[in-house]
Simulated assay, not measured.
Amino acid sequence: MSMILTGKLELSSTHPVETRSGNTSTFTRVDFPTPFPTGSDVIVHATVQTFNGADTPGVRLHDVGETGFLIRLNELYGAGTKSNGEHGPETIGWTAYTV
């Protein structure tokens, strides 16, 4: 049986780009309004819904599970220049479902 959940949140970043794998101290936790059944394979898609800054924001996800996920917003690297990782508030829409 498939299950689909959706949501949105306001997210910004005042932290530098994270370069150490697994460091999620600057991520935000999103809890699903209804958890998926235990043992579910959960997929999350997140998309920036607004355009509140000239630089392109990136979205990183981590620790996706039956009860929620971690998310972080930071500016992307581009054209040979490194971003400082900081970005103003944007609305992020997300969809989670089982496969």
Score class of each variant (00 low, 15 high):
residue 1 M to C: 07
residue 1 M to P: 11
residue 1 M to H: 09
residue 2 S to F: 12
residue 3 M to T: 08
residue 4 I to P: 05
residue 5 L to C: 02
residue 6 T to W: 05
residue 6 T to G: 03
residue 6 T to I: 11
residue 7 G to L: 13
residue 8 K to W: 08
residue 9 L to M: 15
residue 13 S to E: 05
residue 13 S to F: 11
residue 15 H to F: 13
residue 15 H to K: 12
residue 15 H to D: 15
residue 15 H to S: 15
residue 16 P to G: 15
residue 16 P to N: 13
residue 17 V to F: 01
residue 17 V to Q: 10
residue 17 V to H: 07
residue 17 V to C: 05
residue 18 E to S: 04
residue 19 T to K: 08
residue 20 R to C: 00
residue 21 S to C: 06
residue 21 S to Q: 11
residue 22 G to W: 07
residue 23 N to D: 15
residue 25 S to M: 03
residue 26 T to L: 02
residue 27 F to W: 07
residue 28 T to C: 03
residue 30 V to T: 10
residue 31 D to V: 01
residue 35 P to V: 02
residue 35 P to L: 04
residue 36 F to P: 06
residue 38 T to D: 06
residue 39 G to Y: 10
residue 40 S to F: 11
residue 40 S to K: 09
residue 41 D to Q: 08
residue 41 D to T: 12
residue 41 D to R: 11
residue 43 I to V: 12
residue 45 H to A: 06
residue 49 Q to C: 06
residue 49 Q to H: 06
residue 50 T to K: 02
residue 51 F to H: 06
residue 52 N to T: 11
residue 52 N to A: 06
residue 53 G to F: 11
residue 54 A to W: 09
residue 55 D to M: 11
residue 56 T to F: 03
residue 56 T to K: 08
residue 57 P to K: 06
residue 60 R to A: 15
residue 61 L to P: 09
residue 62 H to R: 05
residue 63 D to L: 09
residue 65 G to P: 00
residue 65 G to A: 11
residue 66 E to P: 01
residue 69 F to Y: 12
residue 70 L to V: 03
residue 73 L to I: 13
residue 73 L to S: 03
residue 76 L to V: 14
residue 78 G to I: 00
residue 78 G to A: 08
residue 79 A to D: 07
residue 79 A to S: 08
residue 83 S to V: 07
residue 86 E to P: 00
residue 86 E to K: 15
residue 89 P to C: 00
residue 90 E to I: 07
residue 90 E to D: 13
residue 91 T to D: 10
residue 91 T to N: 10
residue 92 I to V: 15
residue 92 I to R: 05
residue 93 G to F: 03
residue 93 G to W: 03
residue 94 W to A: 07
residue 94 W to C: 06
residue 94 W to K: 04
residue 96 A to C: 08
residue 97 Y to C: 02
residue 98 T to E: 01
residue 99 V to L: 10
